[in-house]
Nucleic acid binder design. Structure first.
Lengths: 221, 221
DNA sequence: GACGACCTATGCGCATCCTCGTTCTCGAAG
DNA sequence: CTTCGAGAACGAGGATGCGCATAGGTCGTC
């Protein structure tokens, strides 16, 4: 099990390295967000531990970077013991777990193992788009940290579109997916759903390609 | 065939440029990893040749960057003749082939062609012309990195022309393709579309062959 | 019965597209 | 080189219909 640690406090990172090694994990440390980003792009790890307060940014940005690349690596964030807002923000951006400092090394190791085991068995892609995160398995969508409640049809539309970002889905394709094959639809129901969906997830997330259909706008931010 | 070369030795990059040009490839050179990364994000190439030892990093990092973006572009890495470890690392990170320095230009060109041909069979067709990229599957067209919005007819014209670059399509051929068989057209609608299309993708992309029709100008840049 | 999810219906705005008239360009003939 | 005609480019106007927004109606659930 290869763990990457993003932590700028040398005392803490040394402790993590030696402590987790005792639990059979091999640990590598970086101390800046930019190092973390480049090493994540380059290599593969079983899990990552991210501190939030770094000299050149927040670990949350690294997390967003990871998830933006469809990397579902388990991520644990370290927060101050009482920083609830940070924890929520972390989970919303796709973190799998958090621990408050100071923490017990044994518990940290155990939680890492749980995360890694769970990750191995899951094919639960968490899509992200701008400030939107969509967890298909939980049928949950959050925007900028707050949970949205989508109706069944709305979620189905979003799910269909987000499976292939940038790909145009025609109205008939979407209807065939929402309704059974010969569960005919006689009106602009789909457009209404798209309309309501846009009101919830943001006007410009879904792009209409006139005469062809809809697609999720690719995020070139 | 548009090739991007990442090489910081000017002697070598000059040689590659002139040598590969003789084999009908158009070559662009960058000498730093950061330049390479930004140009890969902006434009599309048929293949890339990456040196490993660069002033600001390793070509392997560039390779990882490319693959992290789901870009399946064929990549060849250049290594010292006896750097076996580098080759393995390169292939592990998703390179398609490698060559040891010094190399034979003819062989390099041949291997590039093989890579490109192989890649053409697996990828969705993305045509490029100068700073234009056309992804038929996504129905998206970008010019110098920014997305253009083409209307249905405009895209259809462009699609028809770009299927066979350099080939002249007569007006009646294009009309037959845009409109159904007996969906007659009574005027110069096609010319208007060509006109509007030119305004978007660049005046000289589409060449008119007087009395015969239109064609995509072949890129001999 | 209140509520939410869903489908249906309808009017409007606007992008798209065709048409038309004019101007421009090319190329061959004089 | 000049002239001239056909083909091509351009700009503008107007019709069409797609997609949007909104409201009303039905069904199922609590």
């Amino acid at each position: 099990m290869r763990i990457l640690v993003l932590e700028d406090d040398p005392m803490l990172s040394d402790g993590l390295t030696s402590g987790l090694s005792l639990h059979g994990m091999s640990v590598e440390c970086v101390s800046t967000c930019s190092d973390a980003v480049s090493i994540f792009d380059a290599a593969h790890y079983s899990a990552a531990i991210l501190d939030l307060m770094l000299p050149d940014g927040s670990g949350l940005d690294v997390l967003s970077h990871i998830r933006a690349r469809d990397n579902t690596m388990p991520v644990m964030i370290l927060t101050a013991i009482d920083a609830v807002a940070d924890r929520i923000a972390g989970l919303d951006r796709g973190a799998d777990d958090y621990m408050g400092k100071p923490f017990d090394l044994g518990e940290l190791a155990a939680r890492l193992r749980v995360m890694i085991r769970r990750a191995a068995g899951r094919a639960n892609p968490i899509f992200t788009w701008r400030d939107l995160t969509i967890a298909l398995s939980h049928r949950s969508v959050t925007r900028a940290g707050i949970v949205l409640s989508l109706s069944r049809r709305e979620f189905a539309v979003l799910e269909a579109l987000i499976e292939r970002p940038g790909r145009v889905l025609s109205r008939s394709q979407l209807e065939a997916r929402l309704y059974g094959w010969n569960e005919e639809i006689g009106s602009n129901a789909l457009e209404v759903h798209v309309h309501n969906l846009r009101a919830k997830i943001g006007r410009d997330a879904i792009e209409t390609v006139r005469g062809l259909g809809y697609r999720i706008r690719e995020d070139r931010a």
